[in-house]
Design a protein around this nucleic acid. Sequence first.
DNA 1: GCGATAAGTAAGTGCGGTGAACTAACTAAT
DNA 2: ATTAGTTAGTTCACCGCACTTACTTATCGC
Lengths: 377, 377
Amino acid sequence: MTPHTPVGRPLRPQGKLLQEDARRHHRSLLLQQLFRDGPASRADLARASGLTRVTVSDLVGEMVAEGLVTELGAPEVTRVGKPPMLVGLAADSHHIIGLDLSETDRMSGAVVNLAGTVLARHEVHVDGAEGERAVELVLRLAADLLAMTDRPVLGIGVGSPGVVDTSGTVIDAPNLAWSDTPLAARLAAALHLPVFVANDANTAVLGEHTFGESGDGGLMVLRVGTGVGAGFVLGGSLLHGHLGAAGEIGHVVVDPEGERCACSRTGCLETVLAAPRLRRTVAAPGVDAPAALADVGRRLGEVLAPIVAALNLHEIVLSGPAELLDGPLLDATDRTIRERTMPISSTGLAVRTSKLGEDVVVVGAAVLVLAGELGVS
Amino acid sequence: MTPHTPVGRPLRPQGKLLQEDARRHHRSLLLQQLFRDGPASRADLARASGLTRVTVSDLVGEMVAEGLVTELGAPEVTRVGKPPMLVGLAADSHHIIGLDLSETDRMSGAVVNLAGTVLARHEVHVDGAEGERAVELVLRLAADLLAMTDRPVLGIGVGSPGVVDTSGTVIDAPNLAWSDTPLAARLAAALHLPVFVANDANTAVLGEHTFGESGDGGLMVLRVGTGVGAGFVLGGSLLHGHLGAAGEIGHVVVDPEGERCACSRTGCLETVLAAPRLRRTVAAPGVDAPAALADVGRRLGEVLAPIVAALNLHEIVLSGPAELLDGPLLDATDRTIRERTMPISSTGLAVRTSKLGEDVVVVGAAVLVLAGELGVS
DNA sequence: GCGATAAGTAAGTGCGGTGAACTAACTAAT
DNA sequence: ATTAGTTAGTTCACCGCACTTACTTATCGC
């Protein structure tokens, strides 16, 4: 067997590893299998994981006791030997609270089950709340959602605008006037649950990675809304970046002779691609809307081409108003990327719009919890 | 303690974890400590790693027996209590063979010790060798270098041009006429040693990551030679990309009205930035060389800006002919990146040239072995 | 019915860590 | 010189986890 370069695995060891960690890891391994490929017998799980049937039985027993996994009876098809007992993830044994704070006028959230299905929604109006008042609004939204489920709650995931560090502190979010606001800590202290906070584009890419039809290569999700932001899953891990600001491409300059942007720069990507701006563009009298959208798509392609080549991405998913993104814009983006990169970079690439709609962020926030608590995604 | 989003850690569990793995992991943890911060006592190692003194003593004893680590006596400074016995990595207990196949006319290699010091060099001329003959040339180079050390050899690391997959198979390297050439397997079979092969820009970024003065944030190394390529260390891991082609940015179009490129496209980055091309540019009669270099730098900045914003990089290192890269070109690149990205992306960023010179690739190839065999970098 | 085959369980083993208690070697104060 | 206190490193008993071995259970094909 030839040694091979580590993939996804960090180059350096991270910390000490207890037996307890190994057990949790193996639990995750089994859960992941059930999560992705559905019910299986203990023997199936043993074969898939490489663990022995004994160990698998032990772990499964533990998870059945917790209610996370349930026995489902034998499969219809009948073969030689003792018929297996299928076990499967009990999707509604626990619920997750997912919050989406990315919209300007409201904060929305949902109760989500372990299969990523949205079971209930709730929202609060922001009404200009800022700073501490905005934090309290989030607390109330989360508490309201908690009251809407009678199942044990695995945790709370939050997709927040702005730059968020790995401890769940919002470093900077102008719209809500947050800076160095320890949102995860505040929620955890108030609600006594595990809390995970990430940038909304980052939760979106997690949602797409887990519940979209994406493969295992590099994935980029570009969110087009009031602003423009992106999230990346590379080598099986969410990319944070040096200061947690990975994906902040809304203010990359695409046209030095373009419009003045609120950020004081000129011709930022947002000045052509933000949703309100796109709507104005296509509604302008005497404008060939498809051509205008294609023009925006071309500019987007120019920004994405270097990224595609650098990262050798597998998929780019556009998330936002489909009526604007899907069509000439997407086509022009795709075409421009291919025109501007080598076949080796672009042949393995698919560019498409998201099928998850507006739920990507809340569902992705739930994935944050799933990954953090169960090691599943 | 608040849960936090995993960094560098993959979202999903990868495979089963044996106790043996835990022990190797802990060994790496100690080696890493000694590697980075130099000699320490067993008690120091215990404090730094979180392992108990008992475990550390056990592991250190094992490594001392193997010769990897040696006792160095007590430190000069005298404090209360029993004086500690310092232990340190025995840099010359094992050697590593590093190969650099990226130059067009020759293949070069070196014997490197565990501290990354080049102890001996050797090279062979390619003389147009291709395909199988080129493979044999690599075998001979490696064998020659093996004969130059009397220490046990930890492994062989290779920086190859072209696209290399994680198993060390060269998917495509036009210059050497390799396609799907299992280089790592061939070397391993012939020399009975662990072999690691990666793209030369990828080994370069590893070299810079480990032996350059770079921090722990995202690092990009841009190699400017006959061609242009890049490598990335993100979140503590080497980035491979979907098909192993991450970093292949030499043929990103920077100027649709530019020169025709060998790749049949027009205005690729290589048509302005490749070293031979740069030399011609500055030597052209009647040309303002600094201005011309600045112009190239600006174009490079335009390609890098989206990448910087997307990845929130910490450092960009240019590796290649310093007389061309350092100065107007670098300055213009830096300036353009800052003009075209938000402060949040660019303030944490440093753009500089490499101090490791032409050895980056061989030393980086050695890092490939260090990381693979000892879990150290 | 009976052997073959597969699923799942019970008991015992070994490995790799831990904590507690120990020895060794030194400094500092009396 | 004696005593107390501190730090390094080791010995030993124990524990958690996954493994192997050996079994029971349950079905199929004959």
